[in-house]
Design a protein around this nucleic acid. Structure first.
Lengths: 360, 360
DNA sequence: CCAGTATCTGTAAACGTTTTCAGCCGCTGT
DNA sequence: ACAGCGGCTGAAAACGTTTACAGATACTGG
């Protein structure tokens, strides 16, 4: 008598005339007498039994779920990451929980803290900024975390980062070497890590090229398409007269390209455009957009792999006595190498080629 | 004595000197003596207690998780849907589980069946094809499902669909009315529901416009960017000489636009291009792409809302005796209205080549 | 002053699974 | 024939929570 819901091991046990222990053993492939196996499997099939994953999680202490948290899935970079992460984690039998933080700091922190509710076994986090609170919360995280982005040295958390300083430098150097002199820079917010780093690379490349930076050529607002369009219009209205524009991501770059088109400027002849992230957008537009591949896919894969490693390294937790016993291994830091992909939007004259950036 | 892991109600009970029942009651805001409340809350705070969501799920019978399954998150349409779904479900306190099926039928079916493992409380599914097996599995689903896409009449499952026949018709009629006569059609696979329906709309619009369909003008391969590019090149190579091309989605359209550019054809003067889905891509490219908004966002929202409704309507399941008691309410079908968005890529008279064509 | 009651508290069961432990059986070796 | 042993099996505990129930306490009204 147990039709009060979906079939359970108890239902099967009753129908097969064995104990629930035997049912569990058969279902998990542990040894049993052929006769028992037969009866249990038959009963399970007849009842259409599906094991209750929640109960399994409770018993086993792991949910086979991972969380990926980023600010907005609308950004192609995160889409690329999700795809890779999904592929890697799925192969390992994990489900993927998606969490958009909308770049709200409080929300990012809450995600990390929510590791404590045991809903997922681990977390991949893409913070847009790193506050002292981040460091604090990350250090005290209840489970393994891998951060995609830059993290201060002391924080005992794995991280996968792009060398966006070098990436920006590659892009701008490319423009300089193509003979461009008035290279504008359309950036996102300066108080974000990417915003700051990309600017460093921009300035460095200008210096190396012997070009004096002109503050009139810089714009920094947000990371969206509309922002790029407005920024370039604004630059042109202000008479900054750039002959090239480097944008801190592809969305900004497409916005800038639109503005250029609207002004009747030919790309790349009158205005070269280079973006960053080498997202699908770069290949989809016209002319195809030169862009710096910061390895979004690679970072996604790497982060997922690191997380899985942590998970297999941690059969039980906190062997040490102190409440702050150091984590199993030292925090790992991986940096992916940027790669400039030259396409028509910045072609000096020749067809598209690619140049490699150095590893770090 | 219980430092063998994260704090639990037991730890708190010990520290506060009360029973676990009282702890639970205080934590859930049920009545208790002020003194008890104080002590429990203090202990919980000191221990940094976070309730174990898995245990709560097991007890409560619901996980507060929902699953969204589509073929590939790389498609902007699904990104738009995820965003909306995420927003709606999050507001209701649900987490979102993402599942890419890669358009593998077996995988789609597995997702539906996996509702039985109680990992998530409900499912939103975007099937690319509907097989008899789909119907069977969906009918027997262990929890509420909402399908985004077309579903045969008899299937007792909620569905949100786009009227893509009408959508395609709008696009093609628009081209006809703009004076185009040789309107090519670049489609995805014909044996998919969208592929089939869009073709119906295309043919219908041609008929209404008094144009005899020319099989030479049709191409159907896959739904990707590269496919669009190749298709148009192929059409031109074959001497089909179209003066417009309607594409079954924006990615195909951008591919076709690339091909046109590569051939030196001016858009829209020599070749009008219209896409479908009105994804971010349509706004990001140049010239901006005319496209039919099939309401991806709206469908995402609607699906999420319907699912949540089902969940609140179903306090306990299967009240009836029979194993196939009909579901609570009849299956609901919602259809969103398509909307043609005309942009420069199909502008009848050509304002967009020089000077500021678009809105500023 | 006592019965009655309202409030709070603790014990124990339940959710569905895995797993330890001890018991049972039939076998083998001597 | 019997001790020993191997493989199977079932009872029971455990994971961490919520909750029905009953016991305890203090307070009210007569």
């Amino acid at each position: 008598m147990s039709d009060g819901g979906p079939p359970t091991v108890v239902s099967i046990a009753e129908r097969a005339g064995v104990s629930i222990a035997s049912v569990s053993r058969v279902l998990n492939g542990v040894g049993a007498r052929p006769e028992t196996v037969r009866r249990v499997e038959r009963a399970a099939a007849e009842l259409g039994y599906v094991p209750n994953a929640v109960a399994q999680s409770l018993k086993g202490g792991r949910t086979k779920q991972l969380t990926f948290a980023m600010q907005d899935i609308g950004n192609p970079v995160y889409v690329a990451m999700v795809r890779q992460i999904q592929a890697v984690t799925r192969a390992a039998g994990y489900r993927l929980l998606l969490h958009s933080t909308d770049a709200v700091i409080e929300d990012e922190l809450a995600v990390v803290r929510s590791l404590g509710d045991r809903t997922s076994d681990g977390l991949i986090l893409c913070p847009i900024r790193i506050t002292p609170e981040h460091v604090e919360v990350l250090t005290a995280a209840a489970g393994p975390v891998v951060v995609i982005g830059s993290l201060p040295r002391g924080v005992p958390v794995d991280a996968v980062q792009a060398d966006s300083v070098l990436g920006a430098r590659l892009a701008v150097t490319h423009l300089v070497e193509s003979g461009r002199r008035r290279i504008a820079f359309v950036n996102g917010p300066l108080d974000t890590v990417p915003g700051h780093n990309r600017r460093q690379g921009y300035l460095k490349a200008l210096a190396e090229g012997g070009i004096v930076p002109d503050p009139e050529l810089e714009r920094a607002t947000s990371f969206g398409l509309g922002a790029g369009r407005e920024a370039l219009h604004d630059l042109l209205d202000a008479g900054a007269a750039p002959d090239a524009v480097f944008c801190a991501n592809d969305q900004l770059a497409l916005g800038a390209a639109q503005a250029a088109h609207e002004r009747g400027l030919r790309i790349p002849e009158e205005m070269a455009v280079v973006g960053m992230d080498d997202s699908d957008l770069a290949r989809a537009c016209w002319p195809p957009l030169s862009s710096v591949d910061l390895g979004s896919e690679e970072r996604g894969r790497a982060a997922a792999r690191m997380l899985l490693e942590r998970l297999s390294d941690t059969p039980d937790e906190r062997p040490g006595p102190g409440p702050e016993a150091p984590r199993a291994g030292a925090a790992r830091r991986v940096t992916t190498a940027p790669r400039l992909v030259v396409r028509a939007s910045s072609a000096p004259s020749a067809p598209a080629t690619t140049a490699r950036g150095g590893a770090r």
